[in-house]
Amino acid sequence: MPVDSWLPFAQWNLRYNPFGELTAAECAQVAVFDPEPYIEVLRCGRAAVQFIGDCGRGKSTRLLTIQQRVGSEAAFIYLPAFAAVTPQWWLQLWRLRGDLLIIDEAQRIARPLRSRLFRRGRPLVLGTHRDLTRSLQRAGYQVTTVPVGPGNNAQHVRRMANARLAAARLGPGEVPQMSLAEAQQLVNRFGDDLRAIQYFLYHQVQHQAGRNGQMRFID
């Protein structure tokens, strides 16, 4: 067991609270998502993959994972609120260059720009709250639609939590693990909202900083 006493979670062999915010690279590392089948789809010419779901369900994590996997050939853009009516964002979107375009909050692409952008025919990965199948098909895309959220069951939550715990490992050795029963309790309480689960777990773990005993994920 490491003896880094200044680290409040060292007694659990953790370098930091695993349920905090992560960098894009770390996010991709802990994602419980295999991007390979979608990357295969995208290699087949004029293809688009759209991830549809509510906030906090894991759309952005999936986009980041694909971006990290593809590397510098992929161009990523997040469209903030009012991007559809802000010329600066039209310009940024228009200037987006890459073999693969990844657009988060794609429902915010201004309508006239959308058809022009889609006519370019570049492989697309979209995170969206609204189904864009029609616009994509009109531009000749083969569309794969992936609903995000329904798969966020106890098994998924457990894998997500344990992946984060493993990524925060301080040194060789065991780290705490979440059980399926604990994950089920979280799903019963928060449904498929992974972000709410993450915030809850952050507070749960943070309240145990510097203490001994088994880590508790649920009161």
Binding site: N17, G20, E21, L22, T23
Partner: peptide
């Protein structure tokens, strides 16, 4: 250094 916690990194 990098921040860890509830805020963007």
């Amino acid at each position: 250094w990098q921040t860890r916690g509830m805020g963007n990194v």
